[in-house]
């Protein structure tokens, strides 16, 4: 298992910080479980990926899967702190247009607080 996930809560927002690699298999499963668990606690969350050095196709699929189902359930997930590699992957796959990506955790938190739009409206808006 090459992924460490730490969870904390700030003002009703779950913040999950990932460290390591998100790979098809154990890591992707751990991430899915952690995200699902966090969503039962708070509907708003920030996924801090600044410690993630690599994500493979399976990991990306997990991320999109959880992101989509969270959206469908009216929850909100924002991504923060993408490294160069993750940024490139989201560019190649055009998923940067799907996820809401912020440079830092603080910016993602601020966006969640100020965001009064109903979920789904800004779904396809680039950040």
């Amino acid at each position: 298992m090459n992924l460490k996930i730490e969870k904390r809560q700030v003002d009703g927002v779950s913040i999950l910080s990932c460290q390591g690699r998100i790979m098809f298999g154990d890591e992707a499963n751990a991430l899915r479980d952690a995200l699902k668990q966090a969503l039962t606690e708070t509907p708003r969350m920030v996924l801090n990926l600044s410690g993630v050095t690599y994500i493979d196709s399976g990991g990306l699929g997990t991320l999109v899967g959880v992101y989509s189902s969270a959206r469908a359930a009216g929850a909100e997930i924002k991504l923060a702190g993408l490294g160069q590699r993750l940024h490139d992957v989201l560019q190649i796959t055009k998923l940067a247009t799907v996820f809401q990506v912020f440079d830092s955790e603080q910016q993602a938190l601020a966006a969640l607080k100020s965001n009064s739009l109903p979920a789904g409206v800004d779904f396809l808006k680039t950040s």
Partner: peptide, 9 residues
Amino acid sequence: HGNLPVGLL
């Protein structure tokens, strides 16, 4: 040029 992968959305 590029699009989303098939099967995600």
